[in-house]
Design a protein around this nucleic acid. Sequence first.
DNA 1: AAACTAGTCAACCGCTAGTCA
DNA 2: GTGACTAGCGGTTGACTAGTT
Length: 354
Amino acid sequence: MVRTPCCKAELGLKKGAWTPEEDQKLLSYLNRHGEGGWRTLPEKAGLKRCGKSCRLRWANYLRPDIKRGEFTEDEECSIISLHALHGNKWSAIARGLPGRTDNEIKNYWNTHIKKRLIQKGIDPVTHKGLNSGTDKSENLPEKQNVNQTTTDDDLDNDKAKKNNKNSGLSSARFLNRVANRFGKRINQSVLSEIIASGGPLATTSHTTTTTTTTSVSVDSESDKSTSSSFAPTSNLLCHGTVATTPDSSNFDVDGNLNPTSSSSTFSDASVNNPLMYCDNYVGNNNVDDEDTIEFSTFLNDEDFMMLEESCVDNTAFMKELTRFLHEDENHGVVDVPPVYERQDIFDEIDNYFG
DNA sequence: AAACTAGTCAACCGCTAGTCA
DNA sequence: GTGACTAGCGGTTGACTAGTT
């Protein structure tokens, strides 16, 4: 077998985190020509990357069917079951979790599940009890002894930490941040289009005509996540799925909104799960709304329609998003004039999330 | 406030295997 | 059969961050 020439041999190739501009170039090329020809792709697409890097970027991040965001409990259970079956065959495990990449599953296993299994006294390799017949705590790090069982708090802490992570450089991280913060309130196609347009760091406005592309998942604040791919639509905000009480007949036994009966623009049933995406709906109306921001709180129907019509592209959306952020900071009390297009607008958003 | 530590995850590395001329 | 190329895999690294000292 002949070794593939290493990328290192090729001079002048960039390594490290991808920029939104590079993503855009790669997406644009793949939209026009489809997958394949990775070796020659970088040059044709105007990228100073090796083909392998391009393929991985596409496979692990840009592919339209990729879920992003927190793993659900169901997914976690599936991973554990599949790992017991396949071992560290991450690609085999990934095949059992549509939308998840082997890399993502591998990372999640190593950083979350493995630790949790050990805490529970389960060997993550054999999936059997650790040191059966002896005190499990003997093999555990000191701090893990404090709390032997995996609790909801553990999970919440994990996710709280995760949600606080920031990076001004990574478009992936920015998107996750947007998804974390607003995912349940906006149409996911918007998030997809943001990255397709070059992300928050893009310096030029653009009109979206692409039929791409990237899907992102939504990390809900209620510790659930899911995703699906969406074709970009003109409905930039998910009107009506948040503040209204859904018709109970629209939900299945698990509380998921029946997609066939939903008027929502979301197509994934779990995305419409009110328990996941509607703060106001959880436990009826007794939820303290102080810390929640709903676009519908700020907008009456008329405004909402205007916004939907006006946000014809990502630039417009980002402007409006920024305006909401200002209102958020002022608890929606102060009437903040719309933010006009500025170069620093995306920095401002980034700083907000940071 | 600064230095240090630990967690996270995107990206990379090295390798194997399959395909095709 | 051979070599060039591509796809894919699993392990590892390093940048970045939050938390702790």
